[in-house]
Design a binder for these strands. Sequence first.
RNA 1: GGAGGGAUGCGAGAGCGGCCGAAUCGGACGGUCUCGAAAACCGUUGUGCCCCAUGGGCACCGUGGGUUCAAAUCCCACUCCCUCCGCCA
Length: 426
Amino acid sequence: MIDPRLLAEDFEQTARRLARKGVDRQLLESAREAAAARRAAIVATDEARRELNSGSAEVGRLVREGRADLAEARRAELAAAGGRLAALESERRRAEESFDDLIARIPNLPDDLVPDGSSEEDNRVVRVEGYDAGAFEGRGLRPHWEVAEALGIMDTERAAKLSGAMFEVLRGGGARLLRGLVNFGLDLHRDRYEETVVPHMVRTEVIERTGHLTKFDTQAYRLRDDELWLLPTAEVALMGLPQGEILAEGDLPKRSMAYSVCWRREAGAAGRETRGMQRLHEFHKVELVSLCTPETSQDELQSLLADCEATLRVLGLPYRVVELCAGDLTFSSSRVYDLEVYAPGTGRWLEVSSVSLITDFQARRGGIRFRRAGSGTVELVHSLNGSGLATPRVWAAIVEHGQQPDGTIRLPEALVPYVGTELITG
RNA sequence: GGAGGGAUGCGAGAGCGGCCGAAUCGGACGGUCUCGAAAACCGUUGUGCCCCAUGGGCACCGUGGGUUCAAAUCCCACUCCCUCCGCCA
């Protein structure tokens, strides 16, 4: 949620900045009106309550002084005042609900550094690393699903028998490759990020406050008999951890990571680039998150980007860094770099990490704050997240890059100790 | 799953329905003293919201309801924690 003060104090500039994300000015005006109505309702109830409070104190005094008749008279007056207060309070509740509803629909402000644009088309390729277009031509490279099915390390048919579309079963070397990747990812980042094992199911309020559960976001799976949700990403658990707490400035930046299974309903994505390991309902990921001070968050974004890139670099996979334009940013983010790995079997760039600066947007809703060392004042932290290693697509890229003419798969050197072989043969 | 006990400020821990945003101790911070430190003594020490804003008001004692002129204190529901029993990786 954005700072509500912006609506009252800096409306025009806020509207201009949000327009870059395609936010309708009408929504902001409604929110501003709702904020004013809410404030008026607060003033009215506070005043009514003040009268009631001082009246009650007076009754207490009279009772103590033994003047029961006066106390009784005053009590009767206050009973009536109590009725008026109740009416004001229900009005206040209505005002707050309508304000909450509107403010929740306003996305985070895009960073001024973010390029203009309305869609994916306008995203800017910042850098391309390790990619040589000529290197893949004429080699007859096949998509990973063909290579993997032929080798018997992936079984889409039987996965469907178990669970339906957009699930995978991995066997033998394919399964070991997945496990090796996860361990590799955790080891690669363990010096800078605290390794954490988190529950894979979280309460409604936790997922709500991370911004991963809204009226428009039906991505997460919900358990039928308990008020719990399956993680769509470990970010939800890692960001849920400090919710409602006040951290010491000295503890920032606070960097942590978690491996988890991730579940996503992917509603509406059926049939779109879903073959093989491109898009699954269930996948494995090492997620990196960081909490930091507002003045360091841009630097922190760059260092998080560097850490996520390191994964692809060490694996020797060609990739590009794409900066999202204002219109393609997600609801909560103010600046995002996507890392896309090149998959030569399909000739596609696959998104394997979204390195996001959320500024204080997520911290405000989650109540994640820190105390300044000098002044002792309390402020919201900035939060960031990115995938340190997202298995399905990195797995796919490794299969496509490593495929040999005889159908086996040669692994990147860095993975050999983790998988226990240089060559996957089945 | 069954039976009990509990949830208060940074921590521990008090709190007859009114004088309780909350005793006391500890911690932290500032000061006095000291060459410096310790000790001692003095002081400060929650968060949010609102306003006619060097001041004032409102809310918050696990969460949500209720009773009452008035709730940390009474009632109801829920959540979590602890102990014991059962079950279990």
